[in-house]
């Protein structure tokens, strides 16, 4: 039984590490800020949760498990809110997304000035 739990745990940890690195690679490779949000979404959802779940199987049933579950819940609730706030700030700050289909372009967003606040 313990061996099965260990195997499941290592599997989840390996999956989480792989997903984290994939997200990091996407953060580098993808072309603009809106696409990069999807890569950050990978890190926030499956990457972090799989590692936390793997740690849960390592810890066994104790208060540590509850805390890991709380961390997952916090990340799952706060992650999309933060991403949406950032997407909205980027949209209103004039960061136009690179689009593939020209007919789907959001005209208003395009016209909003190029007063992008660079540092």
């Amino acid at each position: 039984m313990a061996v099965v739990l260990d195997i499941v745990s290592w599997g989840l940890l390996a999956l989480g590490s792989f997903m984290l690195m994939t997200g990091g690679l996407g953060l580098i490779r993808l072309p603009d800020v809106f696409s990069r949000m999807h890569a950050a979404g990978i890190i926030d959802t499956l990457g972090a949760s799989a590692i936390m779940a793997g740690l849960m199987f390592q810890a066994g049933l104790s208060i540590v498990t509850v805390k890991l579950g709380l961390i997952i819940i916090f990340i799952m609730f706060t992650g999309p809110t933060a991403t949406h706030a950032l997407a909205r700030a980027a949209g209103q700050g004039g960061a136009a997304p690179q689009l593939d289909k020209p007919e789907k372009k959001n005209k208003k967003r395009q016209e909003e000035g190029k007063a992008s606040s660079k540092t």
Binding site: V33, M37, I43, A90, S117, T119
Partner: peptide, 11 residues
Amino acid sequence: TVYDRILAVNA
């Protein structure tokens, strides 16, 4: 852009 930096810091 500054938004890339915020996104990276969030991640």
